[in-house]
Lab assay of single mutants.
Amino acid sequence: QTIHNGDQTYHYDNPEEAIKVAQKLAKIYNLTVTVKGNTVQVH
Rank of each mutant, 00 (worst) to 15 (best):
Q8S: 10
Q8R: 14
I19E: 10
D13C: 14
Q8N: 09
E17R: 06
Y10N: 02
A26V: 08
T34S: 08
V33I: 08
V42D: 00
T39Y: 06
N30Y: 12
T2G: 13
H43F: 06
H11T: 14
T34C: 09
L31F: 08
Y12N: 01
Y12D: 01
E17K: 07
I3S: 11
V21S: 07
N38K: 04
V40E: 00
D13T: 09
N5L: 13
K36M: 13
V42N: 00
V35S: 02
T2S: 11
T39E: 06
K20W: 07
I19T: 07
H11N: 06
A18V: 01
Y12A: 03
H11Y: 14
N30T: 04
Y12V: 03
T34M: 04
H43G: 04
K20E: 08
D13I: 06
G37R: 02
A18F: 03
L25A: 01
N30H: 13
E17G: 02
A22N: 00
L25N: 01
H11L: 07
Q41L: 13
A18R: 01
A22M: 03
T9V: 14
D7R: 08
L25R: 00
H11S: 08
V35L: 04
I19H: 10
V42T: 02
I19W: 13
E16Q: 09
K20I: 08
E16D: 09
E16L: 08
T39I: 12
A22G: 06
I3C: 14
Y10A: 03
Q8K: 13
E17L: 10
Q23K: 13
I28Y: 14
I19C: 13
L25I: 05
A22D: 00
G6F: 13
K27T: 09
I28H: 10
N38W: 02
V35E: 01
H11M: 10
N38G: 05
L31R: 02
K36L: 13
H43E: 04
D7V: 14
V42R: 00
N38R: 05
Y29R: 14
V40A: 01
P15E: 13
I3Q: 10
N30L: 05
V33Y: 00
N5M: 13
T2F: 12
V33L: 03
D7W: 15
K36R: 11
L25Y: 02
V21R: 04
Q41H: 09
T32R: 04
I28D: 15
Q1E: 11
P15I: 10
T34K: 04
A18I: 02
Y12I: 02
T2A: 12
P15L: 08
T9L: 14
V40N: 00
N5I: 14
A18Y: 02
K27R: 10
I28S: 04
K24R: 13
Y12H: 02
Q8D: 11
Q8H: 15
T32I: 13
N14S: 15
H43N: 04
K24Q: 11
D7L: 14
K36F: 08
A26L: 05
I3F: 05
T2L: 12
A18L: 03
Q8M: 14
D7I: 14
V35P: 01
E16M: 07
D13W: 05
V33N: 00
A22W: 05
T2Q: 11
N5E: 11
A26H: 06
K27E: 14
T34R: 03
K24S: 07
E16V: 06
T34L: 05
V33P: 00
T2H: 14
A22I: 04
N30W: 14
T2Y: 09
A22L: 04
I28V: 08
Q23S: 09
G37K: 02
Q41R: 12
Q23W: 04
Q41S: 10
